[in-house]
Design a protein around this nucleic acid. Sequence first.
RNA 1: GCCAACGUAGCUCAGUCGGUAGAGCAACUGAUUCGUAAUCAGUAGGUCGGCGGUUCGAUUCCGCCCGUUGGCUCCA
Length: 577
Amino acid sequence: MVCRAGHENDPVEKMRHSCAHVMADAVQRLYPKAKITIGPVIEDGFFYDFDYPAGFTPEDLKKIEAEMEKIVKENLPFERKEIGKKEALEFFKKLGENYKLEIINGIEGDKVTFYTHGKFTDLCKGPHVAKTGDIKAFKLLKVSGAYWRGDEKNPMLQRIYGTAFASQTDLDAYLKQLEEAEKRDHRKLGQELDLFEINPDIGSGLVLWHPKGATMRQIIEDFLKRELTAAGYSWVNTPHVGRASLWETSGHLEFFKENMYAPMEVEGQTYYLKPMNCPFHIEIYRSRRRSYRELPVRLAEFGTVYRFERSGVLHGLTRVRGFTQDDAHIFCTPDQVETEINNCMELVLKILRAFGLTEFKAFVATKPAKAVGRDADWEKATKALKGAVELHKIPYEIDEGGGAFYGPKIDLRIKDALGRFWQLSTIQFDFNLPERFQIGYQAATGEFERPFMVHRALLGSIERFFGILIEHYAGAFPVWLAPTQAILLTISDEQSEYAQKVLESLRREGFRASLDDRNEKLGLKIREAQLKKIPYMLVIGKKEMQEEKIAVRSRQGGDLGAMGLEKFIERLKGERQ
RNA sequence: GCCAACGUAGCUCAGUCGGUAGAGCAACUGAUUCGUAAUCAGUAGGUCGGCGGUUCGAUUCCGCCCGUUGGCUCCA
């Protein structure tokens, strides 16, 4: 048992930690056969893993909770005791707690600490609250399977998750927040707003983009296309499959095969669906001799890739098997590295900010023990990455030795409206593929040189980014992204013709507008438009028709009163940018 | 893949302690032309995820499969 590093003195963490002990105690009181293993504090709560093959049902959870209440009422003191390892081993041996034996044997030094409350004793570094009665408000949340030490070769344990807070009010607030997150779930909103579907008849982890979702995707792609073109990228398109020999050269069959779809045979040749775009871009790079004069070469593509993900890890749009990367590869000379990376960073930030994502955290991963490439190149590249995050004043951490074997990288995480962090962008050097594909350029000296190669994705996967965006905005997209920006609502049939004209005017101005002239009450039309989260509802009744106006209602602000179409168009244009 | 829960109409869900199912919304039809979050009435819609077993009889019980969801990274 342990608190999270750096949080040992946080009173809530301490209480959660103690709560985990109380839960383990309750479990063993009710189910003496259950063996205790580990139970750390995690973000927002705690869990405890038990070896109990019968498993726990949701009803068991209620019983355990009730038992915990009793233990809290008993107000038992937590007592700390230092004890020799030998004695500790004997203690747990007698209880048949073999997982604890394994843990003790892995601990350095010859002393360990025990924490006891009532008749329950656990191996534990502490600290704890003084008495079980100090645990104020708690709740068990869910059960799941988990492997001992996270390794699937080990026995499957039963994990119970719970959380505890300093007061019932705090706990309720937390549960409410969970509910709020559930309401924003992109899978739910995706269906309600008719944006996309993942259909088992098509296949797990494969996305069908419905018209509204596809409209948004195109807006996103158009925006990126404009920005990247302006930043000097060239656009390429490459196929979805490639010959086995290509993936042998690239090394994917050696290192990435377990993530690739099974091969297919065509006329005696073996082909694989592409899990990455890089080999294709490299082939384009080396389609002719390159001179230092034309570097940097920046090849960009919205490249759709397929990766085999184990069925259990698939999740809505954020973890899929087929997805499109906003991928690009930069080939440049050593002199250009710094500028290229800085420009990449600038571009990433500009684009993410356009989507209302303004808080970032960067992780710079450096050279691992096993790596390819020259030390000097690693140093130069790592320095450029650090320089770029510092230049743009992004808070960052160094992930020492956390880079891939083929190069250092920056992972950029962004914070969404609910305060959750998501990893989106990545800027990654590659010292491996240029070598494998033997690419080069002719330097000023006339010598044949190897270029630096950088993989970079700003949004990462468009599918995943879209999912995050849906949750970030809770489906209420800003005008520039909304699939329908304004909907015209007539009050009676008499206004249909006039409304149709207004609709045409809006469309001519390039707006995504629609018309609801059904024979229904205004209240119903507003309700439906509101549920679709359309930014503007334009009411047209007798009055508006006579005065050649529209009554504007905004999604969040309600009735804004009547105005001329010109004035409304001006307003919309301002929000479109 | 593994552990657990779940799979009933387009959607959300109820139900059957074994005798082949029901609501609301949506759809369709009709009436209503009604000014800022749900007008009324009617009609239609289901091999109760698939296959097999037990049974006179299975949507219900059992087994297998498929799919969905949560977890399997947090190391006393």
